[in-house]
Design a protein around this nucleic acid. Structure first.
Lengths: 144, 144
DNA sequence: TAAATCTCTATTGACTAGATAGGGATTTAG
DNA sequence: CTAAATCCCTATCTAGTCAATAGAGATTTA
């Protein structure tokens, strides 16, 4: 299960993606529109800023905007920030590999083989879906 | 990430699968061979018993054995018991569907569409891999 | 009948998730 | 200039979960 933080992040980013290029959007506006606790959202956006998923603009009329084109921000990008690796085990994580604590011999581990296949399958899906993909679906459904 | 409980469960079940049909195996034997805390393993096997993944035999010379053929116990079966639904969101879970707490309109949710695709991809993998598959891989690697 | 097992309930410590609070730093519109 | 509006940071709290442990009761069969 993804965390509440991940849901908030995705909703906020989709909100930004839907605005297009109309300048930075205030935290308060996003928070109210998407019903996200303001301070919590603040913390989330700060985290999303580090890897460049969003950009911040300070001062009066400041706010947040997407750090790059919506089509270049995948669901995988976002979930990795909010929830850590997509993989079901550290030993099959590509972005954050780590040996399992009590692993005897990784190359032989039959559990690992299954989890690796699972990781590849989810990563392929989540990396192929971008904010642009999602925003377009919303538009098509008439929700925008 | 899967829980430690899930790791222990999979290891214990693989151990049972590797034994074949040589009667029930004692908890202590599994615990020592696989380096799993005895009492914790006890609790795990009890949970695996409810849905029939294992069968218990009481009294002297008692122990645990697989509840059905190893080829009919998938990784998905096990992970659902130890870690709950495979889905990344309750609203895309097939076995344990639940509406998201703050969902506006599910049929339009673009986040849901992506998570649903992810769920289908992982479920397909994890349901197609059984204890038998894994045991056979171990045999081929010469680890058995 | 007693040894060896399963079964159950309760508890503990460490850690994380989700949320809140308050104030300091920075920018830029006016 | 300067002050309003923002970003930025640290600390804290509560509730819940994970992993593990303990102890005793129930059941079976050698």
């Amino acid at each position: 299960m993804i965390s509440q933080k991940a849901r908030y992040a995705l909703r906020a980013l989709l909100y930004l993606a839907a605005q297009g290029d109309t300048g930075p959007v205030q935290i308060s506006e996003i928070a109210e529109s998407e019903k996200i606790p303001r301070k919590f959202l603040e913390a989330i956006l700060l985290e999303l800023k580090k890897p460049g998923i969003v950009r911040s603009h300070r001062g009066r009329q400041g706010g947040y905007s997407l750090g790059r084109s919506a089509k270049d921000i995948s669901f995988a990008d976002v979930l990795r920030v909010t929830d850590g690796p997509l993989a079901l085990s550290p030993c099959v994580s590509v972005m954050a590999y780590r040996k399992c604590d009590d692993c005897f011999e990784e190359s032989v581990c039959a559990i690992r083989k299954a989890l690796l296949a699972a990781r590849d399958a989810t990563a392929e899906i989540l990396e192929s879906r971008s904010l642009a993909t999602a925003a377009q679906q919303l538009k098509r459904s008439g929700a925008l």
